[in-house]
Design a binder for these strands. Structure first.
Length: 107
DNA sequence: AGTTTGACTGGAG
DNA sequence: CCTCCAGCCAAAC
């Protein structure tokens, strides 16, 4: 993967994450797909973790497939709850209700 | 340069 | 829902 592609991918990820509407959540795989690199889901997490200390991206709206939040980041749960996101009894996001469909906002 | 790890995913048990 | 396994790519060791 060339450096230019990395930069492009990172930019795409930032745009997508920033486009997630309040009260909705998306997964790494979904973002990677929208960015144009469907199998780079791992890089999405790496990039997000990297930019989280430099940019104000709502990375708290990004969860993994099982609706889990970022490890070691307890406040994320409060942030999502404040945005209207409901949680399961175990503390995971109810992704079944808040799963973001990009087509909704694309229209 | 080879091995391990990780803010991942999907399938199987 | 949880754990384990295999596939995946880049960064850290």
């Amino acid at each position: 993967m060339d450096e230019s592609e990395k930069e492009e991918f990172e930019t795409a990820v930032c745009e997508i994450v920033a486009a997630i509407p309040k009260g909705k959540v998306s997964s790494y795989g979904e973002i990677a797909r929208l960015a144009g690199y469907s199998h780079y889901h791992r890089m999405v997490g790496r990039i997000l973790h990297g930019v989280s200390r430099s940019m104000g991206l709502p990375c708290h709206r990004v969860v993994n497939s099982r609706g889990r939040l970022m490890p070691g980041w307890i406040a994320q749960r409060e942030l999502l709850r404040d945005e209207g996101v409901t949680f399961k009894a175990n503390g995971f996001v109810d992704i079944g209700k808040h799963d973001w469909n990009p087509m909704e906002t694309a229209e």
